[in-house]
Amino acid sequence: MNATTARQHEVLVLGAGYAGLAAAIQLAARGKKRGNVRVTVVNPYDVFTERLRLHMTATGQETAEMSIPELLDGTGAGFVRGWVTTVDAEAKTVRIDDDRVLRYDTLVYGLGSVADTAAVPGVDDHAHTLNSAQDAAVLADRLARLDGGTVVVGGAGLTGVEAAAEIAEQHPGLQVVLLGRTEPGAGMRPKAKAHLDAALARLGVQVRCGVEVVKVLPGGVELADGSAIPADAVLWTSGTRVSPLAAVAGLSVDERGRVVTDSALRSVSHPDVYAVGDAAAIRQGYGVMHGTCQSGMPTGVHAALSILRTLAGKEPKPFRFGYYHTPVSLGRNDGIVQFTRPDDSPRRIVLTGKRAATYKETVTASPWPTFARMKKMPASGAFWPRGGRYTRIRSAK
């Protein structure tokens, strides 16, 4: 074996969310056969955060706790716990908060997104978020200590809808007010929209649409029309933002700070950097993808396969993805599944009620089995959940 083949190719994966872990597990499991790829995952926490269930954590419900080192066990991937503070794309190094410097040959950038707490004054100081399990637990403690009162949920997107429904169901003594510029479920088909409206009404959620929060106060929110809504707790779910690290590192980013990628998910400015999940601006025929678990895991898988093809001296294949559904929980025993076209526009097919709740629990169940399957994948393909079943993506040999 010569010096070139003996040297290990160092791959750093920043972020251990759905996309980052999918990339790391696929790459490490397949790279073991090559023997010259070393994968290291960097993440601030050693426990995997199921972001799809944080509205449950926020209401005091127990969810599965999954150790990231255990998820990686058997793949050969290493794990480093720490916050990324600097990415030097020219020197190909990453610095973390204990001042350790990690070198890479290839970087998988999967730092994800968080609620945008900077756009509206007072959000950072006075509102709760669902950015992490720790944030959700803080809100759960606050709600548990309230003896009546009002909870304002700022943002009527799907995160806000799920959180408002969950809080109203688990804490029936609280008045939940859902605020948004548009109506909840505005992009759904009429049947789905009607069911969502009826469910929120049944749970006692007060919906106010067409309003804009301009400031969050210690005891409520101020609206653009000058009025105010008193609140004992405010949950902020309106808008997302990504880490500025990519822009500071000199990577080409879009207007929201997401890494702009080519068709193989490589940074257009630094081809040794792959971007996955919410941190990436990935263009498809229908436009730039929006971040979901549904799309995040496939980006991670594709990045891994692209890296392996490149190391084999082959050109990576273009990433192609189409949406399939939008599952929404409305408490523990109710929900909506709006099936979609590949461009995420709604189809006529809709599930509601208990059937929808069961469907969502099936397709968003703990990712542990999915990651376990990935660790054992043969070289011919990869799997991720899609529409309640496993969908195969052919490996590019």
Rank of each mutant, 00 (worst) to 15 (best):
K376L: 14
S366C: 06
A275G: 03
G257K: 00
I307G: 01
R373D: 10
V350I: 10
V259I: 13
S306W: 00
L245K: 05
R266G: 07
S306M: 00
A275R: 00
V276W: 05
M289F: 03
V253N: 02
A264M: 11
M289E: 00
T362A: 14
G296S: 11
V350F: 08
A356Y: 02
V260I: 13
R347T: 15
Q338W: 10
G388M: 08
G287K: 11
G335P: 09
A357H: 07
S263G: 14
A246I: 00
V248L: 12
G313N: 06
S329K: 12
A249C: 06
T261H: 07
P316I: 02
Q284T: 13
E255W: 08
S295N: 09
G322S: 10
P316Y: 01
D343F: 08
V268I: 11
Y274A: 03
H270Q: 14
T299N: 01
D334R: 12
K360I: 14
L305I: 07
F383E: 14
D344A: 15
V276C: 11
G388A: 05
A382G: 14
R320W: 03
V328E: 08
A303M: 08
K360G: 09
F321G: 04
A372Y: 10
S269H: 07
D262W: 02
T261C: 12
D278W: 06
Y274F: 14
M377F: 09
S366R: 04
T370Y: 09
Y324G: 14
E255K: 14
D262C: 05
I282Y: 00
R332C: 02
W368H: 15
A312M: 02
K314E: 14
A264H: 04
S263W: 07
G387W: 03
V242K: 01
G335E: 05
F371W: 13
G277W: 10
T362S: 13
I282D: 00
A356C: 06
H270A: 12
S380V: 12
R373N: 15
G353E: 04
H302F: 03
Y323K: 01
D334E: 13
R341H: 14
L251P: 05
V337Q: 09
V260T: 06
G313K: 04
R355M: 12
G388P: 13
R341P: 03
G387N: 13
G313P: 02
W368P: 05
D344N: 15
Y324K: 11
V337A: 02
K317M: 12
G291N: 09
P316W: 00
A275N: 04
D334L: 11
V301S: 12
A372L: 10
M374P: 02
A304P: 02
Q338C: 11
A246W: 01
Y274E: 03
R389S: 10
T364V: 07
R283E: 02
V260W: 01
G250N: 09
V273T: 06
A382K: 10
P327Y: 11
P271L: 08
S380Q: 15
L330E: 04
T362C: 13
N333W: 10
P385D: 07
S295I: 08
F371Y: 13
F321D: 03
V273I: 06
G313M: 06
M377N: 15
A246T: 01
R258D: 00
R386M: 13
V328N: 03
L305Q: 13
V288E: 05
P298I: 05
D344H: 10
I282E: 00
G257Y: 00
K354A: 15
